[in-house]
Design a protein around this nucleic acid. Structure first.
Length: 884
RNA sequence: GGGAGCUUAGCUCAGCUGGUUCAGAGCACCUGCCUUACAAGCAGGGGGUCACUGGUUCGAACCCAGUAGUUCCCACCA
């Protein structure tokens, strides 16, 4: 049977993923093992996989697979988020295409359409994760609007209300005119925008219109019809005479007072501020303070209403231009300047946020934030990398109340019930509400009350995610046996997510965990970087700079892509994604594949005489690689402990490629046509198996494929559930020895390269050293890798080219093929370097302050360096003299 | 405006408590090789004033101060 020269991932990926599913290797049930839990950051149910998901889920899968192999009961819970604004917007758009308007539908009808949509498109992203190899427990898949999870949301709403942490209030909120809903402060993204600053004249009432006016600078001329005052700084002498006077609002001729308040900066614009309480949060505050009228001139979708009297029905941005034109016509527009300022955009719809006065529900955050901050400060929850702790602290200390109501249907309906007077109670059902009204002495029937039309913010359900995926009752209903899961899996171990949602989600989960369970939701938060393109731009659909994940998987294999994602993305660092990383991953898979091909091709000797590996150097090679593996395993474990996954991967990469393939396999490779002795063969298979185990979390498919190729396995003997290699003591001396041997081989290869001596030509080799016995042991290795003749042990300088490995002197006689002059030059150069080095060491040692102040081991080290250098110089000088 | 981080090879990044021949890795690059596992490969090699300036120290990529550039977070100057 011939084996393909390159690894073909496609078949293996399909085969093994379904095999793992079939054998339920991803599924977890509580047992007596220690749990290892990750809950997936639930992607938007209508979303498709993008590069951020690829990175994020690769990392989670690496952690989960390793934990599983380490003997933990690993459970990775997948699921999706209902993402109320985004999804509702998509459903509305879909309906519009069908010629249906949301307004024509009842809430129930709309929800039917929405669920249908969810059913149709909701699973796409999770299917894509399977292609990546994500070993989620699909039997535990959850959705934030599953009935039970929604129940939990309502329960927590009621709980917070009872505790006085939730209230309803008329406030200036961030209004998204496209989504037609309020959004929280965190959902507003500020961006710098080029704007215009309009200088508008307001005439003073009762004076000669030509004679007296004030000029006011504004970026929003379309709101002047809502002005109810003009404000100046009380100590601004330019305007003292105006205080108490009345101005005329342009275009609508309304009379408004001039008021004074320190809030106004004298040196911005003209020092005069138009006050529009309905459309600016600061103006609203000013209005409250000064008892101003509130005139709301905007509709919920951002158009001007009848109150505006001008441009009625026009969109706010069209109206801005139109009002400017009208002002200009009226001779009231003094000038327009370019101006840059920060404008808020809706995170979900990208619409410009409109401050809007409305009645909304708020969560009082201060008391929730304090313990959540403490959990991070005390290290109970660890942020990785820790640099995010400072930002986290700042946010928690300056947290503002959270507007949780959304004027949408897709989500959990707020459990507030109103009577006809607008009086309300918070209750889970209408019946309970009626009873609660009755208790208040308000005797009503079911038909007299109605439920709040709004739903809660999506994050108000996702902050429960680490709890509700295990026990939807959240508070641990003793009647619900499901909370055995919660007791077992909660709190989770690691959470892997993007820093962008540290406050949206992570902080709130910590609050919810502490508030509702009295316990943190997870111990470590691994914050990934943002995936950017090569030019450092964030990958986005609109830029079209994001590769299609499935296309990448088709091209490089899932393993290759996983490696590509990880290679250059240390925690918290942005990843400048480049396809060539995936190529490197694919090449690595191919390298592993070919190592397998080599081993597979060996014929194993059965003759008694061939069983011994002692004479061919294999014993040394095996002993070395065993120690090499153990040493590197120790290093890899440390890297994992620090969540340095890309470094861990690189360590595995080098262990496989360099140590195993380039050195070990070359050392033990039998001559052409010769069989392999069984001892070496057995040891090599065992090494390869151990390496596959280390490879598996990163590249699960090829690891599983080769695991089964290497040996006959029982049905359930899969690498995914095989025990991770155990850390064991290693022999440092072996490592040091082989390091020297490798040094000798490298030097000889170098000489061949320089002198253009083909590998076929055997090189003579002599050594003068105190370690001659050691070199004798490794002689077969050196002869094989460097193709030298028998190793001559000498006590004097031998003819030919000389080189040093440590302080051991080697000589190879190249006969006439030697350029004496060049050799002298090379050696002189080295000599000069060594002499310089020695001088610096001597300088250090003769410095009394160094010897006194430095730690003793440092001084000792310097002495050693000095002795080494002296020995080397001595050898070099002699060799140089010998060349004369 | 406030805060945090970053600046090391052509690129992406390691470099722990200041001290090992400490200036590293991967990729890219250059040279030579189709050697019977792998050209998606093998062997070898060249690349850096550790952003800049000053300070502390016996000793600084590492600690301190300042400067420049850069990224992110936060913030209601119309």
């Amino acid at each position: 049977m011939t084996i393909s020269k390159t690894y073909d991932p496609r078949e293996a990926e399909e085969k093994w993923y379904s095999y793992w599913m079939e054998k339920k290797f991803f599924h977890s049930e509580p047992d007596d093992r220690e749990p290892y839990t990750i809950v997936i950051p639930p992607p938007n149910v209508t979303g498709v996989l993008h590069m951020g998901h690829m990175l994020n889920n690769t990392i989670q899968d690496v952690l989960v697979r390793r934990a599983r192999m380490k003997g933990f009961n690993a459970c990775w819970v997948p699921g999706t988020d209902h993402a109320s604004i985004a999804t509702e917007a998509k459903v509305v758009a879909m309906l519009r295409e069908k010629g249906i308007s949301k307004r024509d539908l009842t809430r129930e009808q709309f929800m039917e359409h929405a669920w249908e949509w969810k059913k149709k498109y909701g699973g796409i992203i999770l299917e894509q994760l399977k292609k990546l190899g994500a070993s989620c427990d699909w039997e535990r898949q959850r959705f934030t609007m599953d009935p039970a999870l929604s129940d939990a949301v309502i329960d927590t709403f009621i709980h917070l209300h009872k505790k006085g942490l939730l209230y309803r209030s008329l406030r200036m909120v961030n209004w998204d005119p496209v989504g037609r809903t309020a959004v929280s402060d965190e959902e507003v993204i500020r961006k710098e925008v080029n704007q215009k600053l309009y200088y508008v004249k307001y005439l003073v009432a009762g004076s000669d219109p030509e004679a007296e006016w004030v000029t006011i600078a504004t970026t929003r001329p379309e709101t002047i019809m809502a002005d109810t005052a003009v404000c100046v700084n009380p100590s601004d002498t330019r305007y003292t005479h105006l205080q108490g006077k009345t101005l005329i609002v342009p275009l609508v001729d309304r009379r408004i007072p001039v008021i004074a308040d320190d809030y106004v900066e004298m040196d911005f614009g003209t020092g005069c501020l138009k006050v529009t309480p309905a459309h600016d949060p600061n103006d609203y505050e000013l209005g409250l303070k000064h008892g101003l009228e509130v005139i709301d001139i905007l509709t919920e979708d951002g158009r001007l209403n009848e109150q505006a009297r001008v441009c009625v029905g026009e969109d706010r941005f069209a109206a801005r231009k139109e009002v400017a034109r009208l002002l200009s016509e009226a001779g009231l527009l003094e000038k327009i300047e370019d101006y840059k300022s920060q404008v808020g955009f809706s995170e979900r719809t990208d619409a410009v946020i409109e401050p809007r006065l409305s009645l909304q529900w708020f969560v009082r955050m201060k008391d929730l934030a304090a313990p959540a901050l403490e959990a991070v400060e005390k290290g109970e929850v660890q942020l990785i990398p820790s640099k995010f702790t400072a930002t986290y602290r700042y946010w928690m200390e300056h947290v503002k109340d959270w507007c949780v109501s959304r004027q949408l249907w897709w989500g959990q309906q707020i459990p507030a019930w109103y009577d006809t007077q607008g009086d309300y109670v918070i209750a889970k059902t209408a019946e309970e509400a009626v009873a609660m009204f009755a208790e208040k002495g308000n005797s009503l029937t079911r038909n007299d009350i109605h439920q709040d039309e709004d739903v809660v913010d999506t994050w108000f359900s996702s902050w429960l995610w680490p709890i509700s995926v295990f026990d939807p009752s959240v508070f641990g209903d003793p009647k619900n046996p499901g909370n055995a899961d919660l007791r077992y899996y909660y709190p989770g171990n690691d959470l892997v997510t993007a820093p962008e949602i540290l406050f949206f989600w992570v902080a709130r989960m910590i609050m919810a965990g502490l508030e509702f369970r009295g316990e943190i939701p997870f111990r470590n938060v691994y914050l990934t970087g943002i995936v950017r393109d090569k030019q450092g731009r964030k990958m986005s659909k609109s830029l079209g700079n994001s590769p299609e994940p499935q296309g990448l998987i088709d091209k490089y294999g899932a393993d290759g892509v996983r490696v590509g994602m990880l290679l250059s993305s240390p925690a918290g660092n942005d990843l400048l994604f480049d396809e060539s990383y995936c190529e490197q991953g694919r090449n690595f898979a191919n390298k592993i594949w070919n190592a397998y091909r080599l081993i597979k091709g060996w014929e194993v000797a059965t003759a008694a005489g061939e069983k011994k590996s002692a004479t061919n150097g294999n014993t040394e090679a095996i002993a070395w690689f065993e120690s090499r593996f153990r040493a590197e395993l120790e290093n890899i474990e440390q890297l994992f402990a620090q969540y340095r996954l890309s470094d861990a991967l690189m360590a595995v990469y080098k262990l496989v490629w360099d140590d195993f393939c380039s050195w070990y396999l070359e050392m033990i490779k039998p001559d052409y046509g010769k069989p392999m002795d069984p001892d070496t063969h057995g040891a090599t298979i065992a090494f390869f198996e151990d390496l596959l185990k280390l490879i598996h979390p990163f590249m699960p498919f090829i690891a599983e494929e080769l695991w089964h190729e290497l040996a006959e396995r029982d049905e359930k003997d899969c690498i995914i559930v095989t025990a991770w290699p155990r850390q064991q003591a290693f022999n440092r001396e072996r490592l040091d020895e082989m390091e020297r041997v490798i040094g000798v081989v490298s030097q000889l290869r170098n000489i061949r390269n320089e002198k253009q001596i083909p590998f076929k030509t055997e090189l003579p080799l002599s050594v003068r050293s105190a370690n001659q016995d050691m070199y004798r042991r490794y002689e077969p290795v050196i002869r094989k890798l460097a193709h030298t003749g028998p190793l001559q042990l000498v006590n004097e300088q031998a003819p030919g080219v000389a080189f040093l490995v440590g302080t051991d002197e080697f000589f190879t006689d190249l006969g006439s093929n030697i350029d004496m002059k060049a050799e002298r030059e090379r050696m002189s150069k080295e000599l000069i370097y060594l002499q310089g080095f020695l001088r610096s060491v001597q300088a250090k040692l003769s410095n009394e302050r160094f010897v006194q102040n430095a730690r003793p081991e440092v001084v000792e080290n310097e002495r050693q360096k000095k002795a080494d250098a002296e020995a080397k110089i001595n050898a070099l000088e002699k060799n140089l003299a010998g060349l004369e």
